[in-house]
Amino acid sequence: MAGTGLRAWAGHRIRSIPSWQITLGLALLGLGFLIAAQLATERPRIRYTTQERAPLIETAIDLQESQATLSAQVLQLRDQILALEQQGQGTNAAIRELNDELEDARLAAGLIPLRGTGVVFQLEDSVEPAGAVENERDYLVTARDLRTMVEELWLAGAEAIAINGERVVPTTSIIDIGGLILANSAYLSPPYQISAIGSEDLYEQVVSSPGFADLVRARQDAYGIRIGYLEPEQVDIPAFAGTVTLRNARPAPSEAPAAGDGG
């Protein structure tokens, strides 16, 4: 009997709520969610409102897209050259030997994507609120944090490193511009994933180093910068997609190759 009563009560209540109220309720729920999402998106970066920024932002977005397209083109051309070189070496021992040396040089220069054992560290901005007299920027991951992480990985024996897909090579600079971090002149979007290939105990080597302990103390403990890690079975590191053409440096005379052709 009680069940029948409950169904009757529930039926009465549902009939008594006008449909517009349900619609309005749902819309207000969505509104609240979006306002919260918008506030979360904006925090904790400072926002500027000057009008001249709009065209600059559009230009920057267009240039980022162009840069990504050109990087893909560089990688594609290098793949085509590699394929042609391998086809053309035939049975000529001298060419085979040179191509082997070329492959080693390309591996050393970061021009070939790699797969192997290793670790992926992730650095994320703090979610803790900055105090009234504190600098909000201290609660964000900085270029120096990433450089420290890269340095600790090299020290622990990493053989190849990439940050959010940007290969770290001899000419890589990691810099702050405003609240952004750039590597190889490409914008890195948070969270920052630093992938490294090395021995199977690379992670243990890194976390047991005094430099890593200093980083955790100075950034995670003091400001809440979130430092996490993954140890996937295989780590993939992409090839460097920038220029390796030297404009000012040239091989020292003792290093210059002898010219010659073979068929």
């Binding site: 070189e85 060419i95 040179l98 191509n99 040396e101 070329l102 040089a105 390309r106 050393a108 220069a109 970061g110 021009l111 001899p170 000419t171 390796v244 053409t245 030297l246 000012n248 440096a249 040239r250 091989p251 020292a252 005379p253 003792s254 290093e255 210059a256 190759p257 002898a258 010219a259 010659g260």
Partner: peptide
């Protein structure tokens, strides 16, 4: 091939360079 090898070795730091 030698020119390319020489240039990449210089970039990677495997060869001495001047400039």
């Amino acid at each position: 091939v030698r020119d390319e090898l020489s240039s990449i070795r210089a970039y990677a730091g495997l060869a001495a360079v001047v400039g």
